[in-house]
Design a protein around this nucleic acid. Sequence first.
DNA 1: CCGAAAACGATCATAAACGATCAATTGCGA
DNA 2: TCGCAATTGATCGTTTATGATCGTTTTCGG
Lengths: 269, 269
Amino acid sequence: MHERERHRIILSAVQEKPVATVQDLVELTSASEATIRRDIAALHVQGRLRRVRGGAEALHPAQIGSLAAKPFRVSEGENVAKKRAIAREAVALCTEGDAIIINGGTTTFQMVHYLTTRRLQVFTNSFAIAEHLVKHSKNQVMLPGGSIYRDQSIILSPFENDVTRNFYARRMFMGAQGVGALGVMEQDALIIQAEQKLINQADELVLMIDASKFQRRSSLILCPLDRVSTLITDDAIPDSARTMIENAGIKLIIAGVTAGQATESSSAA
Amino acid sequence: MHERERHRIILSAVQEKPVATVQDLVELTSASEATIRRDIAALHVQGRLRRVRGGAEALHPAQIGSLAAKPFRVSEGENVAKKRAIAREAVALCTEGDAIIINGGTTTFQMVHYLTTRRLQVFTNSFAIAEHLVKHSKNQVMLPGGSIYRDQSIILSPFENDVTRNFYARRMFMGAQGVGALGVMEQDALIIQAEQKLINQADELVLMIDASKFQRRSSLILCPLDRVSTLITDDAIPDSARTMIENAGIKLIIAGVTAGQATESSSAA
DNA sequence: CCGAAAACGATCATAAACGATCAATTGCGA
DNA sequence: TCGCAATTGATCGTTTATGATCGTTTTCGG
């Protein structure tokens, strides 16, 4: 067996298990201990895996603690204030007892802080949102079925027959990768598929995006602009976008980060 | 078991309870007290947990308190050792890569500790199990759709059309309220309905019950006894129950304090 | 305030893992 | 086909992790 083959096998093995022992790899490759050690050492200096006593482990910088919360925390420490302000306006639209759909995302996640004191029926495909609401609020929480994708903390299913069809809501709240005249844009086809399922179950679509998203383009169109009823953004919105939104007949809400809100967001954390 | 795996398990365990004792961790990892102490010390200087007398605790004491973990802790009590032993045997039945179904419950929940170092496809209706596995393991996690019931931390849906139908597993693991000649018994009709959905999607049914359940009766029958392929219980099983199980052609596994688990009976007293 | 039990820290023997070295084998190009 | 270099496997001395033991400290209850 060649060096390359072994390296392939080793790299594959460390993905399978939390730690692949030298013995494991000896059995897998039929090579000697010495060779495996040399391979591990080589891959270690190449930065392809991490060497630990007894074997090797995958190089995932994410250790164990916080897989679910991480993508949210890495997302823009600066923008979190704007996202909170937007989320605050979004929750303000809701009446007690309302049935709402919240699509997973870093902006919509901020809604949980303002939902803790409310009592709504919340349907969400975000595992993180569900987790937070179950623990820290009395809202009724409902989920679609499917696999949990850790990166986005989202529940996705390729199947049509899930309980999403049985849930109806007046409003659905969602973020997006970008917005333009062509419509609301996302990056990933799987995510589009999941979001379209949800969109069908709601009357009004509330789009929550910070102003930077007006510049950004993405390749996949989720839905046309006129499907959106309400758009919440911050005061950095460019005039061109404002015109575009008004022409599309969308209700525009500007969430300002005022003094009063700044103090509150800190206490909500 | 390797150092990293122990560390994983330890970090996972401290999330579970306000404080994980050295004895707990010895049981979970089958390592000696000295090793656990050294691990705790190491993780402490790494800042991944806080060392306290008697064991270790999580750095962020938040999470556990409120809703999700509560029903588990009240019903844990002293049976937790037996439940752990049973859960250990259950996980031992699984081969890497297996697709399994785990029905929510306090006994089955203990499986998460032994699943942290595994890589399986897990379908569960327990929000708590899903949460733990998403955070502390690399298992693929799938959920049915429905409402989250906080008391049991279970996802229930009255609808037939959910993704459960699209998942198939060789084994399903479940607890129960009681077992008798008439079959496996549960208390709640809604829970029965949910469990029956799952049962249909698995070949083998693995029942996990501590021996006290053989006495207990309940009003609702979940399924006949011969639907069960394997039953895991502890060594307090009465002879009458043993006969009943053997007559039904069920494979019986007694999770005792055996060689693998070493030196805990003395300290347990 | 005292005594028992648990928890702890230190130490030591053992076994596993490791690194270095060297001989044997393989691969590769002339 | 030959020869050289690189790779591999085995051996051995060293390092490290582990588990058991023992003496000390802390905690708890009387």
